[in-house]
Design a protein around this nucleic acid. Structure first.
Lengths: 167, 167
DNA sequence: GGAAACTTTCAAAAACTATTGAAAGTTTAG
DNA sequence: CTAAACTTTCAATAGTTTTTGAAAGTTTCC
């Protein structure tokens, strides 16, 4: 397989995966492009490589900065801003986990805690609801704890533990 | 908090979480409704409770069946079909993990394996690409293994192991 | 100051996804 | 066989998200 072909396939595939991680398509593609680029790229270069508009590039670059998975680079003697991606996939995964925890898990935990003290009127419906909420809450809290551990962990330590589990 | 209020909040919140797990909004809401219902519901009842159309109800029920997270129930003496959800959240999480592994992780692994044998022409770009692909592949394969273990594991065993990790 | 280089914004357009509901299809009971 | 009960389909519509690009804003340099 040729370089250009491989590059395109990879951007495509990473775009899809990023999408299922909660980024949007363009965000994920910009990230993929920066991942495989040996040097930082400017907005201009990103627009050109991915054939996207200036506005689109700008917005998604900002979103990536916001998620903390790419960073702004100032090159001496250049007026443009350049961007580079965190190349360590482990760090990236941790960052994504952190964002998603904040954006997704925390809101549902809040609701579960509220709903938890629904008035029990003794009916089947209420009983079932209470049971389900209890289970969900338990599950969500355990997941939250696990995520927290993951986010704070060291790569080698984590994989070693998992290796043991997977045996 | 009153029952009806709690029910609505929960359907809403579960709808959002389901969405971030890869279901769509209505799918997730139908699932939430079935989760908290003590008895199986018919399409009619689902339509009514969620104020959605027949077609929409039908399609999303089918999608849930497809994901394997709800099941069809035949009640003797009734001609309608009824549906109930898997109530064990652990089993549900495992099922979702299984589907997403199939839908998301497998395709990218395939691409990574293909892209892996790009011709190295000695340039910086090619070197960087190879490096990134190697890392991604390593990460994706480890994740795949972990997911596999999770999908096949027993609840109590899994949480016990994780509890130990999290200390 | 003012012009060039660059970044940000945002309303409009395009692309994509979800929903409706009526019609067609299927199954069951008598 | 036929009517009633129920399920499925799908073209049209509604709703949401993404993208565009031109204009406005900002920074830098002489």
């Amino acid at each position: 397989m040729k370089y250009v072909e491989a590059k395109e396939e990879l951007i495509q595939a990473w775009g899809n995966l990023g999408y299922s991680w909660g980024l949007n398509k363009t965000m994920a593609q910009i990230h993929a492009l920066l991942m495989i680029s040996p040097k930082p790229l400017s907005t201009e270069e990103i627009m050109l490589e991915l054939s996207i508009s200036r506005g689109n590039a700008n917005m998604n670059i900002r979103a990536l900065l916001d998620w903390g998975i790419i960073s702004r680079i100032l090159i001496p003697g250049e007026r443009k801003e350049f961007f580079k991606s965190e190349k360590d996939i482990w760090a990236l995964a941790r960052q994504v986990a952190k964002e998603r925890r904040k954006r997704e898990l925390e809101p549902i935990l809040k609701v579960l805690r509220e709903v938890n003290d629904v008035q029990s009127d003794g009916s089947e419906d209420t009983k079932e609801l209470k049971r389900v909420v209890k289970d969900l809450k338990n599950f969500a809290e355990k997941s939250d704890g696990l995520l927290e551990t993951f986010i704070k962990s060291e790569e080698s330590w984590f994989w070693n533990v998992l290796l043991k589990i997977m045996k």
